[in-house]
Amino acid sequence: MATSTTPPQGTRHALPTAVHAGIEAQIPALQRFAKRLTGPGGEVDDLVQETILRALNASNQFQTGTALKSWLFTIMRNAFYTAYNRRKREHVGMGDEWNHKLVMDAPQDWVVLYADLGVAINKLPEASRRSLVMVASGVSYDETARACGCEVGTVKSRVNRARKVLSDQFGAALLT
């Protein structure tokens, strides 16, 4: 014999009304449970409000014989976990390490610096300039030495001296 899951005709609307009345009586217990979930300074009132809203919207799903308090606590726990997981995915603002990276000098400063750097590189001795440009372009020291017709140590010395001259001339402007 199959049993029906719908309540008898006269009790259909009585159950949600009983749930609504029972929820109000459970508010102090919900607040205590919310404090345990959220910890000090947590959003207790928001969690209680979200729980009550969800419970009222699902009051027709409440089954007779189920402990209302346990049902509400389950709703609250699920609401808390949902909000917690959502907050983990959200990135509100940026950390302090990003703030200084977002600030950049005015483009015209870089244009002037780039032009001055080009003039300074052109003033380097031909051998040093060629070695520096090749190494800075990603050519290995060995390949640069073969192209310049000298030893690897000579290329390293030329590049180091050229970097030193440019560093002395431009200082920290090249490091930023």
Score class of each variant (00 low, 15 high):
residue 161 R to V: 11
residue 55 A to K: 03
residue 157 S to V: 08
residue 12 R to N: 11
residue 85 N to G: 01
residue 78 N to E: 03
residue 100 H to Q: 14
residue 161 R to W: 10
residue 92 V to M: 12
residue 60 N to K: 03
residue 104 M to S: 10
residue 5 T to C: 06
residue 11 T to C: 14
residue 89 R to P: 11
residue 56 L to K: 05
residue 30 L to S: 09
residue 159 V to S: 04
residue 149 G to T: 10
residue 143 E to Y: 00
residue 174 L to K: 11
residue 18 A to W: 13
residue 7 P to F: 07
residue 116 D to I: 03
residue 37 L to H: 01
residue 25 A to W: 05
residue 107 P to R: 02
residue 120 A to M: 05
residue 26 Q to D: 15
residue 46 D to G: 08
residue 84 Y to P: 00
residue 69 K to T: 15
residue 144 T to P: 04
residue 22 G to E: 11
residue 34 A to K: 01
residue 11 T to S: 13
residue 33 F to S: 12
residue 34 A to M: 03
residue 113 L to D: 03
residue 18 A to F: 11
residue 56 L to A: 00
residue 138 G to C: 03
residue 119 V to D: 14
residue 45 D to A: 07
residue 47 L to E: 05
residue 66 T to H: 01
residue 91 H to N: 07
residue 162 A to H: 02
residue 17 T to W: 05
residue 53 L to M: 09
residue 139 V to G: 00
residue 167 S to K: 09
residue 115 A to L: 09
residue 49 Q to N: 10
residue 162 A to K: 04
residue 131 S to Y: 07
residue 153 G to S: 13
residue 12 R to K: 14
residue 141 Y to Q: 10
residue 5 T to I: 10
residue 32 R to A: 12
residue 38 T to L: 02
residue 115 A to K: 13
residue 102 L to A: 15
residue 46 D to K: 00
residue 125 P to C: 10
residue 74 T to M: 08
residue 137 S to Q: 05
residue 61 Q to V: 03
residue 28 P to H: 06
residue 126 E to T: 11
residue 83 A to Y: 01
residue 44 V to T: 10
